[in-house]
Structure formats: C-alpha cells, structure tokens
Amino acid sequence: MVRLITHNLLACHAKGCTSNNFPLQFKDIQIELREAEFNPDFLRGFIPRIEWGALTDAARQLGDTSLPSEPPDMLDDDFLQKLHHVLLEIHVEEGAMVCPNCGHVYPISNGIPNMLLAEHEIG
C-alpha cells in the first residue's frame, strides 16, 4: 500500500541522489478510501516522528486539506481523527512517485510501490 504513513518515510535512493530526495511527488494517481481502526494512542506517540510539511503537502496533492500547517498543541479527538484519516485511510492504488531532485519515477501498482532500482542506478 502507499498510504501517507509510508509516503512520509520513502525517499529516493538512486545513485548519487542524496539531497532534496524527499518527499517524493505523486503523479497520475488513483486513490481509494478505506476505513481503518482508529488508535489515538498510536497517533499521539507517532506525531513527533512525522515530517509535518511533507505530510500536509502530500495530503493536499491527494485532495485533503483538513490538516493545519503545524501540529496543534492540543491533540483533541477531532484533530486526531483528521490525522488518522490522512495517514491511514487514503490508499494510493495506482500511479507513481517522482523524485524532486533527480526525477526518478517509482511506479505504484495495485497499491504497492516499486522502490527497486536497476543495477546501474544503485548507489
């Protein structure tokens, strides 16, 4: 799957591409929404690990503008529900992710991102 929880971790690893290689940009994507179990304790613990700007940008690319530009101080249920939806309920099923630095294209098919490199692309 490529949900935004995973997108927030992925970076380009093509040969020589070591800076400005995150976040990957979505291209020509199809998304599906599927409910997932809400776990507020997980989210509270996970928030400090998120690259927040990358998450809100990616959410916007997927048509979701519900998140504030900074995580709020008060982590109420309303906010956590929105975060839950953005991280775990939007599935990118088809399309690609493109490196902002070198332009390498990582295809997504049946919800699974292909991060393999050809032998000459391995750093």
């Binding site: 799957m1 971790l9 970076a11 179990e37 690990r49 991060m115 490199l117 391995i122």
Partner: peptide, 23 residues
C-alpha cells in the same frame, strides 16, 4: 481480517527511506 498492512517492493541492499526514519 479487515486490516491491511503497508508493504514496499524493494531490496534489502537498498535504502529507499529517509535516513533514521524508523524507530
């Protein structure tokens, strides 16, 4: 069950992640 997992197609010799991103 209903839950789906996050999976990525890649090689264990690669590093398709932000460095140090995982706990």
């Amino acid at each position: 069950g209903e839950a789906s997992r996050e999976v990525v197609w890649g090689d264990v010799l690669g590093l398709p992640w932000r460095r140090g991103a995982f706990d």
